[in-house]
Design a binder for these strands. Sequence first.
DNA 1: CGTTGCATTGACCTACTTCAAGATTGGTGG
DNA 2: CCACCAATCTTGAAGTAGGTCAATGCAACG
Lengths: 251, 251
Amino acid sequence: MSSPRLGASLPNPAATDDGNEMRFCSTCAFSAACLDQGYDKAALGDLHCLVEHVGPYHEGDVIFREGDPFTAIAAVRAGTVKTYVIDNHGDEHVLGFFLPGEVIGLNAIHPARYPCNAVAMDTVALCRFSFPQMALLATRMPGLQHQLFRLLSEDIGKAALVAGDYSADERVSAFLLTVSRRLAARGLSGRRFHLSMTRSDIGNYLRLAPETVSRVLRRLQNDGILAVERRELEILDLDLLTALAASVLRE
Amino acid sequence: MSSPRLGASLPNPAATDDGNEMRFCSTCAFSAACLDQGYDKAALGDLHCLVEHVGPYHEGDVIFREGDPFTAIAAVRAGTVKTYVIDNHGDEHVLGFFLPGEVIGLNAIHPARYPCNAVAMDTVALCRFSFPQMALLATRMPGLQHQLFRLLSEDIGKAALVAGDYSADERVSAFLLTVSRRLAARGLSGRRFHLSMTRSDIGNYLRLAPETVSRVLRRLQNDGILAVERRELEILDLDLLTALAASVLRE
DNA sequence: CGTTGCATTGACCTACTTCAAGATTGGTGG
DNA sequence: CCACCAATCTTGAAGTAGGTCAATGCAACG
């Protein structure tokens, strides 16, 4: 069974695999933020009325396509999502990878259309939030509004990794380190993990040839920093990796 | 006379060079948006209570510094603002240039501190908006909230120019074309204009050596696309320039 | 004037790309 | 269980866009 595109809204927003139960969704950034702010159960109930658990999507499934009308943002509950655009030469440009806990669709608010494509890299589950409903609710819940501002603001600075003119070693190191940290932030292992994307995808994202990614990984392995086995990855020397990534991540 | 940093709030927010008069500020994106939404004068009055006209800043003046506590965003009324960070090697990385009508400080909401430095490239005047006050007001004015979401969302996708792996010619062309369009959008000439930044700044922003910027400009001049005289610039063949920039701007 | 900062130009160099050839893996069907 | 295939990954050799270095030009300013 494959899920519909994110743009499509389910007939009954509250009807998910959980039924109508107002269960707290632990991976939902907004709920968490609202709890932090000490909101009452009524407000949380409102919030959960506009949440839908969607998925699973399988590898290669389209989550939204460039040009689709914008209706919702979504938090990744499980799996990895890749966003990309196709330029006028027909070449793909990877814009980002989204791991559990991260939010997709934020860059679609302004043009009111998704400005890029999103596909599942593996088996993906999402929390879908109707944006119009959420914006409305945010006028009653300053904490939610602030959380939205925070998420949006956060994403503006995210381009640094890919924007700077750093060496291939620095870029790959910084990429791996941020993936590691993002996984760890969700309680997953940041020391050993599986890369759900190909060398081509990584290279495309970092503006490097896939061969260069391969060579850098080999070098990092020879230096005892990583153990790489195809897409299985273990960080052996976190300090050295951090040092390599330092200039990119400004630490 | 030099203006204080943006972080400092004036004792009397309404006391500007215009006095207490609730004059409509034509370059203020928010006011314009609210008018578009057909808001009443009371709401507009509220909005103008949290606006301060600040400046002038002169070339080299610091508008905010990395680490300053975040209190306000600001729309550029006149002049050009450059934002940049200093990496741990002590090298400057230019993040962006802000022309009249554009908003600075949006990436500071999340960390609650300005994550970069902002300096005036020439004589700069700003509209300062207290962010806490504006966020509060946004809960009562959905149009304002939406405008803020729009501005933030818009900025997320802005990195494309600098992020893609394009040739030096494409990057410089795209840069000049976007500057031209942004000026034109404010009623200034997009055909002939003055670059307020050095070749180094442009190169730094585009991740090119200043020498490369120089060589590209010479090439574009030899091809009859531009007339360049130091920082004075005229676009002679807009179609060719647009064609060169096409892949970067995805048109 | 001399000085200072920016811009240009040329010659050389290097990090990465491109091209081409295997190696490894996983899937599929006999 | 094995053969085959397609996709991915790796590795090497050669090419190039742009960087670096160094010299010079040029305008603004005291």
